Amino acid sequence: MRPARALINLKALHHNYHYAKSLAPHSKAAAIIKANAYGHGAIVVARALHDADAFGVACIEEALELREAGITQPIVLLEGVFTPDELPLAARYQLMVAVHCVEQVIWLEQAKLIQPLAVWLKIDTGMHRLGFAPEQVASIYARLNACSHVATITLMTHFARADEVECEATTRQIERFNKAIQGIDAPLSIANSPAILAWPKARLDWVRPGIMLYGATPIAEDLAVSQELQPVMTLESALISVRELDVGESIGYGARFTCEQPTRVGVVAMGYADGYPRHAVDGTPVAVNGVRTRIIGRVSMDMLTVDLTPLPQAKVGDRVELWGNMVLANEVAAHSQTIAYTLFTGITRRVPLVYQY
């Protein structure tokens, strides 16, 4: 079989969830497992996090997949329902629903449900994607509170720049949130992963760890709080060819890399059809047999090429780590003008997920 695979360390996943809990010891934590748990496999991740307080997903399809697999913890639909006919399903499967627009309020008021729903009322404090303006919150809360189909209400917002620890935008969003909820007694949830790590004032009744669950920090790696995270996914493959090239020889499509010295080149069974970023530049780190080296030449659909000059003993069949413990996903992302989120969620179906318990 082709050697490309993604190892998923479930012990590291469990560690990261409880690390988030330790940073917010008085909070409940909704583990965010949307987008197939950021590419890690939602059902297996949910089962591994059997002691999680709740899970967060993007849509009802993701929630129903979990329910049908026997996941019983509370699940919140972070974007709510997209049509009113999803509300009876949400009630049947005991899902919590975000409410971020007037249309969703009306659908709730007009619904016919077997039981009331737990609602997460979203407030727009500066992200300007979803949510009610702060001045609308009191009236919308009153409508929801009066609705017979609403069981409980949690107030939430989402940060735009919490990963920028020196930026005052997060402080302003917290201030707007606190002003908007004056006079309302309800559970509160505002902290995503960077806020859990770097903004103590955001650790309220509920926190929502996402990318940090999977061991990638959304803020600087050199901060002490980031260093406690453990990578969950190791993307690996193997060398399938080794060759020696002379000075002046070029490698791969477009001849992007030209050898300035005699160069030992390894070909790895990994490409953009597996989810590895095509736009990774020359010098993107990779590890061969536990030794860090670099990508040279353009990434192809099924293969990429690496510099084996520092590894004179490397041979066909030797292990290659594309990201994991030796090469952090954030490093690869930085060399590819993207973020670790896109690397994880971009892994394609031809790369098997191999779970380590």
Rank of each mutant, 00 (worst) to 15 (best):
H26C: 09
A160V: 00
G266F: 08
A334R: 11
S226C: 04
H158M: 14
M301D: 15
L144I: 02
A52G: 04
V291W: 12
G215H: 03
L95N: 01
A91E: 05
F132R: 05
G271F: 06
A287M: 06
A98E: 04
A314E: 13
H50E: 10
Q136K: 15
A220M: 12
K315D: 13
T293H: 05
A151M: 14
W199F: 10
A54T: 04
L89F: 09
Y19H: 11
A269D: 15
F82P: 03
A91H: 11
M127C: 12
G41E: 13
L213Q: 11
P84I: 03
E244I: 07
G248N: 08
D53F: 01
Q313G: 00
L13T: 00
L66K: 05
V165T: 14
A198M: 15
K11D: 12
G41S: 06
T284I: 00
K11W: 00
H100W: 12
M303P: 00
Q94A: 15
A269W: 15
A138F: 10
P262E: 07
A90V: 04
T170H: 04
G324L: 10
D274W: 11
Q313N: 12
A169G: 01
S300Y: 03
A280N: 07
A151D: 08
N16V: 11
R349F: 12
I174T: 06
V320W: 11
F257S: 10
Q173T: 03
T348K: 14
D85P: 06
D246I: 08
A48K: 09
M96R: 07
M303F: 13
S336L: 08
Q136G: 01
P84V: 03
S241P: 00
A98F: 13
T348H: 13
R349G: 13
I75K: 01
G283L: 14
A220I: 03
P88M: 06
L117P: 02
R92E: 15
L10H: 10
G297Y: 10
R176C: 07
I75H: 04
M326A: 09
C147M: 05
Y253P: 00
D51E: 11
H50R: 14
T217W: 06
L322F: 06
V57W: 01
Q261W: 05
D318M: 09
E68Y: 13
P74V: 00
G41A: 08
F159W: 10
K34T: 05
T170R: 06
E321N: 10
V320S: 12
V327D: 05
L7M: 08
A146H: 06
Q337H: 14
V45C: 14
A195L: 10
L66F: 01
P84C: 02
T342H: 13
R243G: 04
V286L: 07
E109W: 03
L188D: 01
K11H: 12
V351D: 02
N9C: 06
